[in-house]
Design a protein around this nucleic acid. Structure first.
Lengths: 155, 155
DNA sequence: TATTGTTATACTCTATAACTATA
DNA sequence: TATAGTTATAGAGTATAACAATA
């Protein structure tokens, strides 16, 4: 969103736009997203792929419609993402015998390893980002982000 | 970035992707960005416009190249954004008499009012987002976001 | 020749809508 | 007729590259 790079190094005036949490979340989120994108690029995936792997990792093999709803994207995007992940050998599509219209998506062993690697890289990025915070501050941040996630509309 | 909507309502396992700060910043940032976009839509601006207004509000009238560098976008995008803001009467371009290649961008009174309104809406969104946090937690979050912004590469 | 701003073009990502197959 | 998946098309947003004016 509002990805203005040149924010002042000192704390901005609280009444300024740059002092709002909304603005900061936007800028930091965009920047962190870009860094994560770069961090997993050589694995052949982008963040949405990783999100899809993550959805599949928690729970039984899901239909593409289920996955689309969970991710908050349209089903046609899941088709594209799943095509690419299938090409990487990270997921497999199996026709549901009970309803042959459905494709159930499941992680392969390779997919699990890929997700694990992406998660490790996310954690490495976490460590970089929070290097300037104390353990207490890190915990407070983690908790606050959990609350924000729910408040922002994540179910 | 990784905007998976259906994260579990309970705290995710810390070793999972969804437990990383990187992932959470991505999802929350995307969502908050979308909500801010919706919040200022009726004013005829998008977050990048607001970012441009914000840059202009802090400091002397700047050339479009300066603004592009500060915002971390290419100069041609500043042309488009400035065109639109000029159309709204929010900024004015004046040729620099010392170097007639340069356009110096400056906020008009209408532009200041527009930025103030956008800032007010960002603060209202802040209040919604942090409704579930104590004052202490809010402060801790604000501080942590400041550190993250610098750590993420904001100068 | 180098730089500022502009225009023209292209690319990435994602959504909408039409189509196929199963139900 | 309705639903899952797919394909085709389109749109938003932003970048790259060519161009005009000025230095």
């Amino acid at each position: 969103m509002n990805d203005v790079k040149g924010s002042p190094s000192q704390e901005p005036a609280p009444e300024a736009l740059t002092g709002t949490l909304t603005f900061r979340l936007g800028t930091v989120g965009t920047l962190v997203g870009a860094r994560f994108t770069a961090a997993v690029e050589d694995l052949g995936v982008r963040p949405k792929h990783v999100g899809l792997l993550s959805v599949l990792s928690s729970g039984a093999p899901a239909s593409q419609q289920d996955v689309a709803r969970t991710m908050g994207v349209v089903p046609s995007l899941v088709v594209t993402l799943a095509d690419q992940l299938e090409g990487l050998g990270a997921i497999e599509r199996v026709r549901d015998p009970d309803d042959r219209r459905r494709h159930r998506l499941g992680l392969t062993e390779e997919g699990r390893a890929l997700l694990a690697e992406c998660t490790a890289r996310a954690r490495a990025l976490d460590a970089e980002l929070t290097a300037g915070l104390s353990a207490t501050e890190r915990d407070a941040l983690a908790h606050a982000m959990g609350v924000l996630a729910r408040e922002a509309g994540l179910p």
